[in-house]
Simulated scan of single mutants.
Amino acid sequence: MNIDFEKSGGLVPAIVQDALTMQVLMLGYMNREALDKTIAEGKVTFFSRSKQRLWTKGEESGHFLFVDEILTDCDNDTILVKAFPQGPTCHTGSYSCFGNKLPKGFLYELENVIEQRIADKPENSYTSNLFSRGVNKVAQKVGEEAVELVIEAKDDNLVLFKNEAADLLYHFLILLKTKNLKLQDIEEVLVERHK
């Protein structure tokens, strides 16, 4: 990376974006040392202007930002870090420093929760229990939820319809996991079809 740190006195703005939802999480500043540490450790590190030292996001809270990709703008004087947040990003407890709105890509977040439940196998976890019963049982459940959605589509109760649609999406994500696929794999097919 050929970043022009000298252009603005040794610090450049570093925008952090959720790698899954693309929502902007925060803005900080990096010097060369902060960028090097971010690249080496895989956790977003800034230069704190108030503390006058390097500061790794999450060093106190445990809410690290794990790096997925680092990009620069066309002038090489701004950094964009796509990261996976581990908990809220803002010191106020919000998901983002720009508000606590539900990100538009919540299905990706739900996909992560499903994967975690399957990996951890918590006691009384519906997700883990269903997954452990195999692809046939999960596929059957997706079929049941699809039929229930069709039935609700013929009525006028939008609340029930939305709940059945949510159930179908949730079970579909579990089915994808049984096939070792991710939502992004399906999204890529749709994007390719759209061309």
Rank of each mutant, 00 (worst) to 15 (best):
E41V: 13
L168S: 04
K195E: 14
L102Q: 10
T78G: 00
K43M: 13
E111V: 09
A83P: 02
L11T: 07
L11W: 06
L149A: 04
I39S: 07
Q23P: 00
I79G: 02
D68R: 13
V147K: 06
F131N: 07
L27W: 02
K82L: 10
E60A: 08
K137S: 03
V189P: 11
G143R: 08
A153H: 12
L25M: 03
K141L: 12
E123A: 14
N2S: 10
Q184M: 14
S128V: 04
L27K: 02
F5H: 05
C90H: 05
N76W: 05
N163V: 11
V81C: 01
E33C: 01
N136L: 09
F106Y: 11
G9A: 10
G93A: 03
E192M: 09
L27N: 02
K37P: 04
G42K: 08
L158K: 15
K43R: 15
S50D: 03
L168G: 05
P85H: 08
N136G: 06
Q52D: 11
C90D: 07
E145V: 06
D4G: 05
K195W: 12
Q17D: 00
P13F: 02
F98L: 09
S61Y: 12
K51M: 04
R32T: 01
V67F: 11
Y170E: 13
E164P: 08
I151Y: 11
F5W: 07
L80N: 02
C97G: 04
N76E: 07
K57R: 14
I151Q: 14
A14D: 02
L181A: 15
D156M: 13
G62I: 11
C74F: 03
F161I: 11
T45R: 03
I15L: 07
I3N: 01
D167A: 12
K179C: 13
F161N: 10
K121H: 07
T56C: 14
T45L: 01
E145A: 13
I118A: 12
S125P: 06
K101R: 08
L176Y: 14
V81A: 03
S128T: 04
N100W: 06
T21H: 01
I174E: 09
K104F: 13
E152V: 12
G9M: 07
Q23G: 00
G42E: 10
I114C: 11
Q184E: 15
N157M: 12
D4F: 06
Q17W: 00
D75W: 00
F161C: 12
C97Y: 07
V159Q: 15
L11C: 09
Y126N: 02
K177M: 14
Q17L: 00
G9Q: 10
L110W: 01
A40C: 08
V191C: 12
Q140T: 09
P103R: 09
D77I: 03
I114L: 15
G58Q: 13
G62M: 09
V150T: 08
K154S: 14
F66W: 06
T45H: 02
R32N: 05
S125C: 10
T92K: 04
F47Q: 00
L20C: 01
H63T: 12
N163C: 11
T21Q: 02
E111N: 09
K82V: 00
L20R: 06
Y170T: 15
Q140P: 00
P122T: 10
M30K: 01
G105I: 06
A153W: 09
L169Q: 07
D75F: 03
D77F: 02
T72I: 08
E59D: 09
H91T: 11
